[in-house]
């Protein structure tokens, strides 16, 4: 078939599509409430988390608006799945994409999220010629906000009480960066592809 799947390597991480064997590691963080906020599939229990995982495994292409590319974030040192990053193609005429990410609690505060998200943003600008990449976070998620700011993304929106989320008034931040604002090359050491059967 000649299908190629994307692999992105950074200093400490390998980003690649999910594999069947990743399931248990994903289940360990996927259902956590703070992870759930901006994911496509709700996962209140193991069965739901499992079908979410199966759907994410199929997100390997960004051909048209609505497509998502989801990559497992794997630590080189021990092969552990520390989380995942997802890039969604939102709009063709304006070349817009949304980036989302999750890092398992055991792997936080080590800069893995920033390293992985930065690599995927670089990939989006270089390979898919996006004009703008944006990210949303809940107002109270200080760690995510710091991560995005650290990558040079600008705070573009701070919505207050714009919607109810699980019975409470929600606060939402939007961060964005334009192609020309992104410091190319600095964040990815290596981009490679490998054949899959």
């Amino acid at each position: 078939m000649g299908m190629t799947d994307l692999t992105i390597k950074t200093g400490r991480l390998v980003l690649r599509p999910f594999e069947k064997a990743d399931l248990d590691e994903v289940l360990s963080y996927y259902s956590l409430p703070d992870v759930q906020r901006y994911l496509d599939w709700k996962a209140r229990d193991r069965t739901e988390a499992k079908s979410a995982f199966e759907a994410m495994r199929k997100q390997t292409r960004l051909s048209r608006p609505g497509d998502s590319l989801t990559l497992a974030v794997v630590r080189k040192a021990d092969g552990k799945v520390v989380g995942h990053v997802s890039l969604r193609y939102m709009d063709a005429t304006a070349a817009q994409a949304e980036i989302r990410f999750a890092v398992g609690p055991a792997f936080r505060r080590k800069g893995y999220g920033s390293e992985a998200v930065g690599a995927v943003i670089s990939h989006g600008f270089a390979e898919h010629k996006f004009h703008r990449v944006f990210a949303r976070t809940a107002g109270g998620n200080e760690a995510s906000a710091q991560l995005l700011k650290g990558l040079g993304m600008r705070l573009e929106a701070h919505y207050r009480e714009h919607a109810l989320f699980q019975g409470e008034w929600d606060e939402e931040l939007h961060f964005a960066i334009l192609d020309r604002e992104w410091q190319r090359g600095a964040k990815v050491s290596e981009i490679s592809r490998h054949k899959v059967a």
Binding site: A94, H131, R132, E156, A157, Y159, E161, H174, A176, L178
Partner: peptide, 26 residues
């Protein structure tokens, strides 16, 4: 109303890049 958003080049508007303000009041 408070300025809640300043979107830059988030869309195409009449053939050029759009820049938009969102203001809100509770």
């Amino acid at each position: 109303m408070r300025e809640e958003a300043h979107f830059r080049e988030h869309a195409q508007f009449k053939g050029r890049w759009d820049e938009e303000f969102v203001y809100a009041i509770l």
